[in-house]
Amino acid sequence: MNFMSDKSIKKLLHSWYTMLKHRHFSKAEDIKTTLTKHKRRLAKKQELYLHYQLMLFRHQLWMNQTEELAKLKHELMLHKDQMNEELQYYFYFFLGLYESLNSDQNDAIHYIEMAEERLPLLNDELEEAEFHFRTSGIYYNNRYSLLSIRHVQKAIDIFAKHGDVHSIYRCKIVLALNFSDQKKYEEAEAIFFDIIEYVKMIDDQELLGIVYYDAGFIQSRQNRHKEALEYFKKSLRLPAYRKSTHSYVSCLYETVRSCFKENLTEEGMKYIQKGLKEAVASQFDILRMKFQILFLLYSQTPKADEQIATLVTCLEQKEAWIDLEDLLADVSDYYKKKGDFERAAFFIMRG
């Protein structure tokens, strides 16, 4: 094994993070392998070792290695007070992204705010842009459109200054989704047409799957479920899209919703089985419960409403308010169409 100086290791740690930010996953994996060979030496240098663990956490977050993430999070928590300001920034930033992925949005925002306090200490414009871009996604997930747009615009301005066209297009995805939340559907769709052409040109199949899903989601928000299904199915046909596990499982869920809205119950049930399997495998508990609720609703097993109410309580305990808002509207609409106004009222009041 070749000797590496502390300076070389630190440079390699920064390169690892850069490769992850630019979605160069094979290069990131190579750097991870190289650094892992030096793990015993790293363990003797606390600052370098904590830096290594933080980058490993970000790497596993990208790869959705859920079980390893929980263990590593616990270990990092024990050593957060030994981190310098730069490492504490990464710690809180990555923790915010982790909690957002787990749909614990209150904790996500708390950690992101703690990271932002330390951001100026890095004196790194491109990291500032990355932070604002990721933060805009967290605020979008909480339907704080104005805050999300403010952060994504900051990111766009910095990326434009550095001529980073690819990152600008990533930001445009969040911008378009926010426009959809504001019911500016024409503006949102125009942005997505532009993004789709760009992603086709660079031939990033994984990103194309994400973009098709988001474009379909905008259609479903307008109750144009036939058009939404066309986009969702384009996403699901792309093998590379499966790498973006959370987006992929979310796409399966939205496909189920749109199938049921179009009275394609049998097809919807097939997607539920697939979605449930994926949600369980990836430990996406909130998505798993949402699939279970739709299954109970449309299969109408005995005492389905009682089982649905139990799952709703579980979602409430997880404070999944955004998920519940849309889901309970679907449940209420189902019972309303069946003429069961008592159950329809019960579930809409839970929202």
Rank of each mutant, 00 (worst) to 15 (best):
N142F: 01
E325I: 08
Q292H: 06
K184C: 04
K336V: 01
E85P: 02
F57W: 06
A304W: 03
K233H: 11
Y271W: 12
F159E: 09
H59M: 08
L54H: 03
V199H: 00
E227C: 05
Y92G: 00
L78V: 04
H22V: 14
S220G: 04
S299L: 04
L276H: 02
I308Q: 03
S282Q: 11
I308A: 08
Y212Q: 13
A176D: 12
A320G: 06
H22I: 15
L236E: 10
M201A: 09
P239D: 01
L13M: 05
C259G: 12
T301V: 12
F25S: 10
Y52H: 05
I138R: 00
I202M: 11
Q300P: 00
H14R: 10
Q105C: 02
K7T: 12
E189L: 06
N102W: 06
H38F: 13
K303A: 11
F347I: 01
F57L: 07
V256K: 05
A176E: 05
R343D: 04
K243N: 15
V211T: 12
E206Y: 01
L146Q: 15
Y144E: 15
H38Q: 13
T310V: 07
D333S: 12
K337M: 11
Y111P: 05
S244N: 10
R118V: 02
K270F: 03
A160L: 11
L126D: 04
A43K: 15
E113C: 08
G339I: 06
Q307M: 09
D285C: 05
H110R: 11
F217I: 00
I149P: 11
A43R: 14
I149Y: 07
K154T: 07
Q65S: 15
K226R: 11
H24D: 13
H14E: 12
R221Q: 14
L42P: 09
Y271Q: 02
H38D: 08
F25N: 13
L122K: 01
S136R: 04
R170S: 06
Y98L: 03
L97D: 04
H151N: 15
L175E: 14
A188G: 08
H74P: 01
L324E: 03
R343I: 13
D323Y: 15
